[in-house]
């Protein structure tokens, strides 16, 4: 997990992100990695440099074959709106990144894809 976070920071800086943005991306990666360890036991984190018409960026896929999230809407709810969270940190991860996508199925696992653009 520590390796994933370190790599994320390295990749960000190599891709041209400033220290502060790299730190935000690393925080998001750390949160996803901790969720995998905590709920699924194991999984993988893939770091990719991506480019699109709008420019270059970094993409992170965090995926596992764990229990999945039964109430995804609740998991995405903010403390500000509901007063409590499921504690997965997903709303925070979404705030830290530009793109956020989650696919999850109870019993089959979860895949979170996040992107930050330069």
């Amino acid at each position: 997990m520590a390796v994933a976070i370190m790599r994320a920071r390295q990749q960000c800086q190599e891709a041209g992100f400033d220290v502060s943005t790299s730190c935000r991306v690393a925080t998001a990666v750390s949160e996803l990695a901790r969720n995998i360890v905590k709920y699924a036991g194991q999984g993988e984190i893939i770091l990719l440099r991506v480019s699109a018409p709008r420019g270059a960026g970094i993409e992170i896929r965090a995926q596992d074959q764990g229990p999945g999230i039964t109430d995804i809407e609740k998991a995405m709810e903010d403390r500000y709106s509901t007063g409590r969270t499921l504690g997965l940190g997903l709303p925070g991860v979404r705030r830290l990144m530009d793109d956020f996508d989650i696919k999850t199925e109870p019993g089959a696992g979860t895949r979170v894809t996040i992107r930050k653009w330069l």
Binding site: S22, C23, R95
Partner: peptide, 13 residues
């Protein structure tokens, strides 16, 4: 605390 860390901590609630 460094700026990037602070920003991320607050965003992460």
């Amino acid at each position: 605390l460094q700026p990037g860390i602070v920003a991320a901590l607050v965003e992460m609630d």
